[in-house]
């Protein structure tokens, strides 16, 4: 019971710290939202003070008293009001996120789960057959590919499949169909999502491959594996049931942490493919100093990561007997 109380207390404390940092950090960036907005509307050039004054009046923010602003922010959060976006004024932040979130959830969600499955599988096989040709290919290959910039991969994919071969559309989440659960719209969405997903799939499994391989190699050196082998367990049972199962624990923590990507999206990939997801929105909110939008996205990211971790913490005792013993 103490285990659960400690974990819950830790969760709440982290949440408060995150909320407070979330308020402070965006305001530490130099730059005034109204001036940035006017410059964006008019391009790189002169900033008209009259327009800046109008935009300031419209956005109605003030940085005069940080403590009052912090109080307002906490009050707003308590009533689940995320405020009005600066960039998309007068649309509320919740509407803006509502437009972008499904795209990222589907794109990044699917690629993340696929990567996890594929990555742990390849990593486990590589570790089981370590020093084989398969292991060498996987380890060296993924270290090499992992060092490539995903933007660069994205541009190559875009150039080859969209512009040269013309198989897939180059930009957007969908093109000319009317949104709805119609086959043609789904086909439209799939054809638009294919290239960004492909790009993500090149690099996303690598973290899982390497961490799975490393922990599994470690686990394979444990005495109980040797004992199992000596006792004549079948190779497959030993590999999957004993080695992989134990090696999986830290990888699951890694997976929970990686869920933050779901909210953060992938800024660069989404920009290259003009994909309407959270990554671009986050980048945009940051460069526009769109405080309400930035805070909402960061907050959601933090809450998702913390909650995922919290859940992993709670179920850990179920899958790992050692944690169960420690908590007793």
């Amino acid at each position: 019971m103490a285990y659960y109380a400690r974990k819950t207390g830790y969760f709440l404390l982290t949440l408060w710290a995150a909320i407070t940092l979330n308020f402070i950090i965006p305001r530490l960036q130099p730059g005034d939202p109204a001036e940035i907005m006017v410059r964006q509307l008019n391009g790189q050039g002169e900033i008209d003070p009259a327009q800046v004054a109008a935009v300031k009046a419209m956005l109605g923010y003030s940085n005069d008293n940080v403590f009052i602003a912090y109080g307002d922010y906490l009050r707003q959060l308590a009533s689940f009001d995320l405020g009005t976006s600066f960039t998309y004024f007068p649309y509320p932040v919740a509407d803006v996120i509502g437009q972008a979130l499904p795209w990222t959830l589907v794109l990044v969600g699917i690629t993340q789960i696929l990567s996890f499955v594929l990555g742990t599988l390849l990593g486990a096989i590589a570790a089981w057959r370590r020093n084989s040709r398969f292991d060498a290919t996987i380890s060296v290959g993924s270290t090499f590919v992992g060092n490539l910039q995903s933007v660069w991969i994205g541009l190559i994919v875009l150039f080859v499949f969209a512009y040269t071969l013309g198989w897939f559309p180059a930009s957007g989440g969908y093109g000319y169909t009317t949104p709805g659960l119609t086959p043609i719209h789904i086909a439209d969405v799939v054809s638009h999502g294919f290239l960004p997903a492909l790009t993500l799939m090149v690099t996303a499994p690598i973290g899982f491959i390497l961490s799975m391989r490393n922990t599994m190699v470690q686990v394979l050196g444990e005495d109980y594996i040797r004992l199992g082998a000596a006792a004549g367990l079948k190779e497959r049972t030993l590999a999957l049931g004993y080695a992989a199962r134990n090696a999986l624990l830290p990888v699951i923590t890694g997976f929970a942490l990686s869920l933050g990507v779901l909210m953060g999206g992938s800024i660069l990939i989404e920009t290259v493919f003009d994909y309407p997801g959270m990554g671009r929105l986050m980048g945009e909110a940051t460069s526009n100093r769109d405080f309400p939008l930035m805070q909402a996205i960061l907050l959601a990211t933090i809450v998702i990561v913390l909650t995922a971790n919290f859940i992993v913490d709670l179920i850990y005792p179920l899958i790992d007997p050692r944690a169960r013993k420690a908590s007793a």
Partner: peptide, 17 residues
């Protein structure tokens, strides 16, 4: 439109988006 998120229709030119 200035923003990357689309589908938030607003023809009002006073809006930054």
């Amino acid at each position: 439109a200035g923003g990357s998120v689309q589908g938030l229709l607003n023809y009002n030119w006073l809006s930054p988006n």
